[in-house]
């Protein structure tokens, strides 16, 4: 059931997917790993779309150098916890959703518990070791993993459905080196929005997901393309799990 305020708020998108779709979003719980460049647009768009519960995790404090791209955080937030800043903005932009903001470093011990009963994990991390960890949690819980990564004007994204699509380790068996990466805010804006779009389609059960395809964005050329990616039967993360027949969230 929706309040009058919610009906007004979501009116223009309920033209697309009706009460049933909006109800699906409201009942959904999405885990956003990171409240930085990608986590900002992802969580903002999921919040305004009415995803009922958003858990966002980050361990950092807002730094002035974050502000060219991490649009959840404002100048006044410098020195504050990113989770505090994120929760404040997301609740302000949509008071009708629940936001859990957890200030912790995601590690092997806490990752599965942090994700809890979430319906999907959004990868808004800046390093591969944590991405691999979350990829394994997604496989264990049989929930989707919405990957995104950026560098400068370039970005990549793909949607991983455990048992159906290649997992992160199938696609990228070896991590690129960690670096202080150059970036302009529009790049995570574009890739994060692609990820949020994937989450919404998955939850709504509509459209074609970015599955089995790596989306590659070249902002310098304003050119997007995709490359096919396949499961690695010998993958150390997902090689043992059987192929699934459904790639959709159950009603």
């Amino acid at each position: 059931m929706f309040s009058e305020r919610e009906r007004e708020r979501y009116k223009r998108q309920m033209m697309l997917f009706g009460d049933e779709g909006q109800e699906r979003l409201k009942k959904a719980h999405i885990f956003v790993a990171g409240a930085g460049g990608l986590g900002s647009p992802v969580s903002l768009y999921l919040a305004v779309a009415g995803v009922g519960t958003i858990t966002i995790v980050d361990m950092d404090v807002v730094d002035q150098t974050n502000l060219n791209r991490q649009i959840l955080h404002f100048d006044r937030d410098i020195g504050r916890k990113k989770t505090t800043s994120a929760k404040e903005k997301l609740q302000e932009i949509n008071p009708d959703i629940t936001v859990n903001a957890i200030d912790v470093k995601i590690d092997e011990i806490n990752a599965a518990d942090l994700v809890g009963q979430a319906d999907g994990i959004v990868d808004a991390m800046d390093n591969y070791p944590t991405r691999y960890l979350l990829n394994e949690v997604a496989i264990a819980k049989e929930i989707p993993f919405f990957h995104g990564g950026i560098h400068g004007f370039y970005g990549q994204a793909t949607t991983i459905i455990p048992g159906t699509t290649p997992c992160l380790k199938c696609i990228f068996p070896k991590a690129p080196p960690k670096e202080v990466f150059p970036v302009v805010g529009v790049t995570p804006g574009i890739i994060g929005t692609v990820q949020a779009n994937e989450v919404l389609k998955y939850l709504l059960g509509i459209g074609e997901l970015l599955t089995g395809r790596l989306f590659i964005w070249d902002g310098m050329q304003a050119h997007a393309e995709e490359i096919c990616v396949e499961r690695n039967p010998a993958c150390e993360a997902c090689g043992g799990i059987a192929k699934k027949t459904t790639a959709r969230k159950k009603k």
Binding site: G37, G39, D126, Y128, G149, I150, P177, K178
Partner: peptide, 10 residues
């Protein structure tokens, strides 16, 4: 032939 560097930032 395509040669692609995965990107790590976020």
């Amino acid at each position: 032939i395509a040669v692609f560097p995965p990107v790590a930032g976020g």
